[in-house]
Simulated scan of single mutants.
Amino acid sequence: MLNKFDAIKYFCSAAETLNFRETANRFAVSPSVITRVINELEETLGEPLFKRSTRHISLTDFGEQFLPNAKQLWQDSEKLFRPKQKRNDMAGIVRITVPSFRHNDEVLTDLLTALEPYPELLIDWREGMEKADQVREKIDIGLRIGLEPDPNFIVRKIAEVGDLLVASRTLVAQLGEPTDLADFEQRYPFAVPINVATGRAWDLILNETDRLQPRKMAFMASDPYSHLQAVRLGKAAGLISEFLAKPYLQSGEWVQLLPQIPIEKWQLYLYRPYQQTTPARVRQVFELLEEILKKHWT
């Protein structure tokens, strides 16, 4: 059976040298092998590639037309099977999924700046609060908030992220500060976070003993920045991430409610799947992103 890859490279070399013996020397085979393979290729194509005489060979018109495509195929196959050390380790795609955070623009700017020396590297950057399907979406690197990292991932802890129970100073002035959790649940309108995976409200567990069960739902959204706006405008109180709430607490626009109740912190962590072989580009982007995220979060 004709080995088409060998046939293509033998043909391309013979078209360059116009000498089957020289072509045979290049590939350390006998001239009869070159002759046999070229003959089989011509039979497969149904056209002669070379005009032969006892003294020399030359390409036929069909051979001239066939040569550019053959050269391209040979070059592509050589590139495909090139040894790893001869390839550009920083060429290819890296898919990254991150939650929708406002300072993602700064993080992405730092990452792309650091990767400027690698023009053949393609970053596929995906933002969203829903959990990505690691396999179906072919995610290489992810950033996630959770109580416990997935043991199936290589994980780098970035920071601890806590929630605060907050309301605008205007709303607190209208209703008065709650005396305890039950009082808050009874009197305060609340911005309820929605789990996009189920379409239902999240179960608001504050700690091992306390669960938040507001009676007055005044606003519902899956996006934490929408909750922020509802709280900022005095529409409702909310359970807001500390890093989002901090500027408003510092400016005096917001008040932290029931600070005596401990709220369990979550982990913000960078991860990549365990794989038998991980491309160098994924490892390097992972390390760069870890450094950049820690700078922005700490």
Rank of each mutant, 00 (worst) to 15 (best):
K4I: 15
D6I: 12
D6S: 15
A7W: 07
I8H: 02
K9Q: 14
K9F: 03
Y10M: 13
F11R: 09
S13Y: 10
A14S: 14
A15K: 07
L18G: 02
F20K: 04
E22S: 05
T23A: 00
N25M: 09
R26Y: 10
F27C: 01
A28V: 07
A28G: 02
P31S: 08
P31N: 10
S32I: 12
I34P: 00
I34Q: 05
T35F: 10
V37W: 06
I38P: 06
E40Y: 08
E40L: 15
E40T: 09
E40K: 13
E42Q: 14
L45E: 07
L45V: 04
G46Q: 03
E47N: 10
P48N: 03
F50D: 05
K51V: 15
T54L: 09
T54A: 13
H56D: 11
I57L: 08
S58R: 14
S58P: 04
L59D: 06
F62L: 01
Q65I: 05
Q65G: 11
L67Q: 11
N69M: 08
K71W: 09
K71R: 15
W74R: 11
Q75F: 05
Q75E: 09
S77T: 12
S77Y: 12
K79M: 08
K79A: 14
K79F: 04
K79I: 03
L80D: 00
F81A: 03
P83L: 04
P83E: 02
K84F: 01
Q85R: 11
K86W: 13
K86F: 10
R87V: 06
D89E: 14
M90A: 04
A91H: 11
G92P: 14
I93L: 09
I93Y: 01
I93Q: 11
V94S: 09
R95Q: 02
R95A: 15
I96P: 06
T97C: 11
V98M: 15
S100I: 06
S100F: 13
F101S: 07
N104Y: 11
E106L: 09
V107F: 01
V107K: 02
T109W: 06
D110I: 03
L111K: 02
L112T: 15
A114M: 07
L115E: 02
L115R: 01
L115Y: 05
E116F: 02
E116I: 14
E116D: 04
E116R: 14
Y118P: 06
Y118A: 03
P119G: 07
P119V: 05
E120L: 13
L122C: 14
L122N: 15
I123M: 13
W125N: 10
R126A: 08
E127H: 06
E127I: 08
G128Y: 01
M129T: 11
E130C: 03
K131G: 01
K131T: 15
A132D: 05
D133T: 10
